[in-house]
């Protein structure tokens, strides 16, 4: 048993990379839920983003083009959800689940002839001498461009929700859509926009898996990351910076178990495999059990259908 063999710096660096897919998906879902919509189709959005990003990247020869495609594909799939739930008032839970199943099936169909192909590689920004700094170089300057983009995105979402007028309106819609409506805010339009943003982020998260982390297309390559992202939003009690923390934690558990094995720390493999999911459940129980603030943080109109009748 030798913990010393695990280099904490490289471990943190890989944990950050492992956190990316769930981070993107969760930050998108956070905005969606803040607007009062519960979209359980995150897994479907991610896998559609993954497959379309992969196909476009392979066909165009550019990973960046692929990422843009994944953003559009995710948003397009989310739009179906938006139209069904916002205009036709379908049940959000059932529609979201259907979206996941539909996404998994469609991606398998689209991706059939793309298994086993190597996608074009994604560019890494070059920080020159900064990357060679002893500790900081490894911790800060050796990631792919999307990692830096994710940092910008989280800060932007935090600012948007907390300090911008539009963000305030979005939260108002999520807390009490009837009140927001009577004040003249466009409830349905706000929610559709939030759903589109959530879809775009989910798509990007999926593409991160297929284009950067693995990088390969296979059926079900997202392997449940969408569900973890959903849990993460609750775990973070709808706060952007806590999402980052949770994403590193959840992404890291998988890596930690592989690291443990490699240095010869013996834990029954079954426990290791279930660890990320166990942490998710424990986190959810701890949060709902504490009972004071967390429950209040949930947007009041979350999952409730809105009809502009009054």
């Amino acid at each position: 048993m030798d913990f010393g063999a695990i280099n904490p710096l490289t471990l943190i660096a890989t944990m950050i990379v492992a956190a990316m897919p769930v981070l993107f998906a969760a930050i998108g879902e956070l905005v969606v839920e803040k607007s009062g919509v519960l979209n359980l189709g995150v897994e479907g959005l991610m896998i559609i983003g993954a497959v379309s990003g992969f196909i476009v990247a392979v066909e165009s020869g550019s990973a960046v083009t692929g990422l843009f495609a994944s953003v559009f594909a995710g948003a397009a799939l989310a739009l179906i959800f938006g139209i069904l739930t916002q205009f036709f008032h379908s049940n959000q839970v059932a529609t979201g689940l259907a979206l996941t199943l539909f996404g998994l099936g469609l991606s398998a169909l689209l991706g059939q002839s793309y298994a086993g192909i190597k996608p074009p590689s994604f560019p890494y920004p070059d920080f020159g001498p900064l990357a060679d700094l002893p500790v900081l170089g490894l911790l800060l300057f050796r990631y792919d461009a999307l990692v830096y983009f994710s940092a910008v995105l989280v800060v932007a979402v935090w600012w948007f929700l907390g300090y911008s007028r539009a963000g305030l309106a979005l939260r108002a819609v999520g807390e009490n859509h009837d009140a927001a409506h009577s004040l003249g805010y466009k409830v349905v339009r706000t929610r559709i926009l939030a759903i589109l943003f959530g879809g775009a982020c989910g798509g990007l998260g999926g593409a991160y898996i297929a284009l950067i982390r693995v990088p390969q297309w296979t059926d079900g390559v997202t392997a449940g990351a969408g569900w973890i992202a959903l849990a993460l939003v609750v775990f973070s009690s709808w706060r952007p910076f806590r999402v980052v923390l949770g994403a590193c934690l959840f992404g890291g558990v998988t890596l930690l178990q592989l690291n443990f094995q490699a240095v010869g720390i013996e834990i029954n493999a079954a426990y290791l495999s279930m660890a990320p999911y166990l942490v998710t459940i424990l986190a959810l129980v701890a949060i709902s059990g504490s009972g004071r603030r967390a429950a209040l943080d949930a947007p009041d109109s979350l999952g409730k259908p809105f009809r502009a009748s009054a």
Binding site: A18, V214, T254, L258
Partner: peptide
């Protein structure tokens, strides 16, 4: 067969 896990490993 789980490319993501194999890649992580």
């Amino acid at each position: 067969f789980d490319p993501a896990k194999e890649a992580d490993a």
